[in-house]
Amino acid sequence: MVNSKSGDQVIGARLLAVTLVAACLILSAGCTTNVEVKGSLPTPLVKKLPLNMGVYYPPEFRNFTHREKIFEQGTWTVDMGTQNLEFFRNMFAAMFDQVVEIQDLDIPSGDEVGTGTVSVPENLDGIIIPEIAKYGFLTPKISGLNFFSASIHYRISIYDKTGNLAVNWVVVGYGKSPTSMFGSSEALNDATILAIRDGGARIAIGTFQHPAVLKWLRANNIALD
Protein backbone atom coordinates (compact mmCIF):
# COMPACT_ATOMS: atom_id res chain seq x y z
CA MET A 1 0.00 0.00 0.00
CA VAL A 2 2.82 2.34 0.95
CA ASN A 3 4.72 1.34 -2.17
CA SER A 4 1.66 2.00 -4.32
CA LYS A 5 1.22 5.51 -2.89
CA SER A 6 4.84 6.46 -3.47
CA GLY A 7 4.51 5.05 -7.01
CA ASP A 8 1.54 7.40 -7.61
CA GLN A 9 3.54 10.28 -6.19
CA VAL A 10 6.43 9.54 -8.55
CA ILE A 11 4.06 9.44 -11.53
CA GLY A 12 2.43 12.67 -10.34
CA ALA A 13 5.80 14.38 -9.95
CA ARG A 14 6.85 13.23 -13.43
CA LEU A 15 3.60 14.49 -14.96
CA LEU A 16 4.09 17.85 -13.22
CA ALA A 17 7.67 18.07 -14.54
CA VAL A 18 6.58 17.21 -18.08
CA THR A 19 3.76 19.77 -17.90
CA LEU A 20 6.15 22.46 -16.62
CA VAL A 21 8.71 21.72 -19.36
CA ALA A 22 5.97 21.79 -22.02
CA ALA A 23 4.60 25.07 -20.63
CA CYS A 24 8.11 26.59 -20.64
CA LEU A 25 8.67 25.47 -24.22
CA ILE A 26 5.32 26.90 -25.35
CA LEU A 27 5.96 30.19 -23.54
CA SER A 28 9.51 30.57 -24.87
CA ALA A 29 8.36 29.75 -28.43
CA GLY A 30 5.66 32.39 -28.08
CA CYS A 31 8.25 35.00 -27.13
CA THR A 32 10.41 34.70 -30.25
CA THR A 33 9.24 34.83 -33.85
CA ASN A 34 11.80 33.85 -36.46
CA VAL A 35 11.23 34.61 -40.11
CA GLU A 36 13.56 33.30 -42.78
CA VAL A 37 12.31 35.18 -45.82
CA LYS A 38 11.26 32.85 -48.64
CA GLY A 39 9.01 33.39 -51.62
CA SER A 40 8.73 34.08 -55.30
CA LEU A 41 11.15 36.80 -56.45
CA PRO A 42 11.23 36.70 -60.27
CA THR A 43 13.69 38.28 -62.69
CA PRO A 44 12.36 41.56 -64.13
CA LEU A 45 11.44 41.97 -67.79
CA VAL A 46 13.21 45.26 -68.51
CA LYS A 47 15.40 46.84 -71.13
CA LYS A 48 19.07 45.90 -70.83
CA LEU A 49 21.46 48.83 -70.85
CA PRO A 50 24.67 48.44 -72.87
CA LEU A 51 26.86 48.89 -69.81
CA ASN A 52 29.52 46.79 -68.18
CA MET A 53 28.76 47.30 -64.50
CA GLY A 54 30.48 46.25 -61.35
CA VAL A 55 28.19 45.39 -58.43
CA TYR A 56 29.32 45.37 -54.85
CA TYR A 57 27.11 43.78 -52.21
CA PRO A 58 28.27 44.95 -48.77
CA PRO A 59 28.40 42.21 -46.09
CA GLU A 60 25.47 43.86 -44.25
CA PHE A 61 23.39 43.53 -47.42
CA ARG A 62 24.41 39.94 -48.04
CA ASN A 63 23.49 38.85 -44.54
CA PHE A 64 20.79 41.32 -43.58
CA THR A 65 18.94 40.34 -40.44
CA HIS A 66 16.50 42.55 -38.57
CA ARG A 67 15.97 42.02 -34.85
CA GLU A 68 13.36 43.87 -32.86
CA LYS A 69 11.87 43.50 -29.43
CA ILE A 70 8.26 44.65 -29.27
CA PHE A 71 6.50 45.36 -25.99
CA GLU A 72 4.26 42.41 -25.06
CA GLN A 73 4.91 40.76 -28.43
CA GLY A 74 8.34 39.28 -27.86
CA THR A 75 11.42 39.32 -30.06
CA TRP A 76 11.16 39.19 -33.84
CA THR A 77 13.98 38.15 -36.13
CA VAL A 78 13.68 38.61 -39.89
CA ASP A 79 16.48 37.06 -41.95
CA MET A 80 16.46 38.37 -45.53
CA GLY A 81 19.95 37.25 -46.53
CA THR A 82 19.86 34.72 -49.33
CA GLN A 83 16.57 35.56 -51.04
CA ASN A 84 17.25 39.29 -51.17
CA LEU A 85 20.80 38.79 -52.50
CA GLU A 86 19.74 36.31 -55.22
CA PHE A 87 16.93 38.65 -56.28
CA PHE A 88 19.33 41.58 -56.71
CA ARG A 89 21.82 39.40 -58.60
CA ASN A 90 19.10 38.39 -61.08
CA MET A 91 17.73 41.92 -61.30
CA PHE A 92 21.06 43.59 -62.12
CA ALA A 93 21.87 40.82 -64.62
CA ALA A 94 18.57 41.70 -66.35
CA MET A 95 19.23 45.45 -66.27
CA PHE A 96 22.82 45.59 -67.60
CA ASP A 97 24.63 43.92 -70.51
CA GLN A 98 27.43 42.65 -68.30
CA VAL A 99 27.67 42.48 -64.55
CA VAL A 100 30.81 41.75 -62.58
CA GLU A 101 30.48 41.07 -58.88
CA ILE A 102 33.12 42.89 -56.87
CA GLN A 103 34.18 41.03 -53.76
CA ASP A 104 35.86 43.81 -51.82
CA LEU A 105 35.50 47.58 -51.92
CA ASP A 106 36.17 50.52 -49.62
CA ILE A 107 33.01 52.63 -49.67
CA PRO A 108 33.57 56.32 -48.86
CA SER A 109 31.43 57.64 -46.02
CA GLY A 110 30.01 60.68 -47.90
CA ASP A 111 26.66 60.28 -49.65
CA GLU A 112 26.51 63.54 -51.64
CA VAL A 113 26.47 63.18 -55.41
CA GLY A 114 29.79 64.24 -56.94
CA THR A 115 31.77 63.47 -53.82
CA GLY A 116 33.65 60.42 -52.61
CA THR A 117 35.69 58.13 -54.75
CA VAL A 118 35.95 54.43 -55.19
CA SER A 119 38.45 52.55 -57.28
CA VAL A 120 36.69 51.50 -60.51
CA PRO A 121 38.49 48.92 -62.69
CA GLU A 122 39.19 50.17 -66.24
CA ASN A 123 36.92 47.70 -68.00
CA LEU A 124 33.86 48.83 -66.04
CA ASP A 125 31.48 51.72 -66.80
CA GLY A 126 30.70 52.13 -63.12
CA ILE A 127 29.93 50.40 -59.86
CA ILE A 128 26.49 50.00 -58.35
CA ILE A 129 26.06 49.35 -54.63
CA PRO A 130 22.72 48.33 -53.11
CA GLU A 131 22.27 48.72 -49.37
CA ILE A 132 19.41 48.26 -46.95
CA ALA A 133 19.22 51.57 -45.11
CA LYS A 134 16.20 50.60 -43.01
CA TYR A 135 13.75 47.77 -42.52
CA GLY A 136 10.60 48.00 -40.47
CA PHE A 137 7.35 46.20 -39.92
CA LEU A 138 4.03 46.64 -38.16
CA THR A 139 2.00 43.90 -36.55
CA PRO A 140 -1.82 44.10 -36.50
CA LYS A 141 -1.61 44.70 -32.74
CA ILE A 142 0.46 47.85 -33.30
CA SER A 143 -1.34 49.22 -36.36
CA GLY A 144 -4.87 48.22 -35.37
CA LEU A 145 -5.36 46.92 -38.92
CA ASN A 146 -5.91 43.29 -39.85
CA PHE A 147 -2.64 42.84 -41.74
CA PHE A 148 1.11 42.79 -41.30
CA SER A 149 3.04 45.43 -43.22
CA ALA A 150 6.76 45.69 -43.98
CA SER A 151 8.89 48.40 -45.55
CA ILE A 152 12.45 48.30 -46.83
CA HIS A 153 14.48 51.44 -47.56
CA TYR A 154 17.01 50.47 -50.23
CA ARG A 155 19.86 52.87 -50.96
CA ILE A 156 21.22 52.59 -54.50
CA SER A 157 24.59 54.24 -55.08
CA ILE A 158 26.17 54.37 -58.52
CA TYR A 159 29.79 55.42 -58.94
CA ASP A 160 30.83 56.53 -62.43
CA LYS A 161 33.92 55.50 -64.40
CA THR A 162 36.05 58.03 -62.58
CA GLY A 163 34.91 56.71 -59.22
CA ASN A 164 32.71 59.70 -58.27
CA LEU A 165 29.29 59.16 -56.75
CA ALA A 166 26.88 59.81 -59.64
CA VAL A 167 23.61 58.53 -58.14
CA ASN A 168 22.42 58.29 -54.57
CA TRP A 169 18.83 57.14 -54.52
CA VAL A 170 16.67 55.80 -51.72
CA VAL A 171 13.84 53.52 -52.83
CA VAL A 172 11.13 52.37 -50.44
CA GLY A 173 9.53 48.98 -50.98
CA TYR A 174 6.26 48.27 -49.20
CA GLY A 175 4.25 45.11 -48.70
CA LYS A 176 1.31 43.96 -46.65
CA SER A 177 -0.26 40.61 -45.97
CA PRO A 178 -3.41 39.67 -44.06
CA THR A 179 -3.05 37.86 -40.77
CA SER A 180 -2.63 34.22 -41.60
CA MET A 181 -4.15 31.17 -39.99
CA PHE A 182 -0.67 29.66 -40.36
CA GLY A 183 0.79 32.20 -37.95
CA SER A 184 2.45 35.57 -37.67
CA SER A 185 5.74 34.48 -39.21
CA GLU A 186 4.07 33.47 -42.48
CA ALA A 187 2.17 36.77 -42.72
CA LEU A 188 5.35 38.77 -42.01
CA ASN A 189 7.28 36.66 -44.53
CA ASP A 190 4.66 37.41 -47.21
CA ALA A 191 4.65 41.13 -46.39
CA THR A 192 8.47 41.22 -46.59
CA ILE A 193 8.52 39.35 -49.92
CA LEU A 194 6.02 41.87 -51.30
CA ALA A 195 8.19 44.72 -50.00
CA ILE A 196 11.25 43.25 -51.77
CA ARG A 197 9.21 42.83 -54.98
CA ASP A 198 7.89 46.39 -54.70
CA GLY A 199 11.34 47.87 -54.07
CA GLY A 200 12.76 45.78 -56.92
CA ALA A 201 10.00 46.93 -59.28
CA ARG A 202 10.78 50.54 -58.50
CA ILE A 203 14.51 50.01 -59.00
CA ALA A 204 14.10 48.01 -62.23
CA ILE A 205 11.71 50.54 -63.79
CA GLY A 206 12.68 53.76 -62.03
CA THR A 207 16.45 53.56 -62.44
CA PHE A 208 16.17 54.50 -66.11
CA GLN A 209 13.82 57.39 -65.29
CA HIS A 210 15.82 58.86 -62.41
CA PRO A 211 17.29 62.29 -63.34
CA ALA A 212 20.71 61.51 -61.87
CA VAL A 213 20.86 58.20 -63.76
CA LEU A 214 19.87 59.90 -67.02
CA LYS A 215 22.60 62.49 -66.46
CA TRP A 216 25.11 59.72 -65.81
CA LEU A 217 23.97 57.84 -68.95
CA ARG A 218 24.29 61.00 -71.04
CA ALA A 219 27.82 61.42 -69.70
CA ASN A 220 28.48 57.87 -70.94
CA ASN A 221 26.93 58.72 -74.35
CA ILE A 222 24.13 56.21 -73.81
CA ALA A 223 20.75 57.27 -75.10
CA LEU A 224 17.51 55.63 -73.96
CA ASP A 225 14.77 55.18 -76.56
Binding site: P42, P44, L45, V46, L194, A201, R202, I205
Partner: peptide, 29 residues
Amino acid sequence: KDQLYPWFEARTAPTSADDLARLFAQPGV
Protein backbone atom coordinates in the same frame (compact mmCIF):
# COMPACT_ATOMS: atom_id res chain seq x y z
CA LYS B 1 2.60 38.35 -62.07
CA ASP B 2 5.90 36.44 -61.89
CA GLN B 3 6.14 36.04 -65.67
CA LEU B 4 5.46 39.74 -66.22
CA TYR B 5 7.35 41.12 -63.24
CA PRO B 6 7.65 44.09 -62.56
CA TRP B 7 4.70 45.31 -64.63
CA PHE B 8 1.75 43.98 -62.60
CA GLU B 9 2.81 44.78 -59.04
CA ALA B 10 0.50 46.87 -56.83
CA ARG B 11 2.39 50.07 -57.63
CA THR B 12 3.16 49.46 -61.31
CA ALA B 13 0.08 47.69 -62.69
CA PRO B 14 -1.77 49.55 -65.45
CA THR B 15 -4.88 51.28 -64.14
CA SER B 16 -6.59 51.66 -67.51
CA ALA B 17 -6.72 49.68 -70.74
CA ASP B 18 -5.28 52.78 -72.43
CA ASP B 19 -1.96 51.93 -70.74
CA LEU B 20 -1.78 48.53 -72.47
CA ALA B 21 -0.11 49.81 -75.64
CA ARG B 22 2.65 51.45 -73.58
CA LEU B 23 3.04 48.26 -71.54
CA PHE B 24 3.26 46.03 -74.60
CA ALA B 25 6.07 48.23 -75.93
CA GLN B 26 8.26 47.09 -73.02
CA PRO B 27 10.81 44.45 -74.00
CA GLY B 28 9.57 40.90 -73.64
CA VAL B 29 6.04 41.74 -72.50
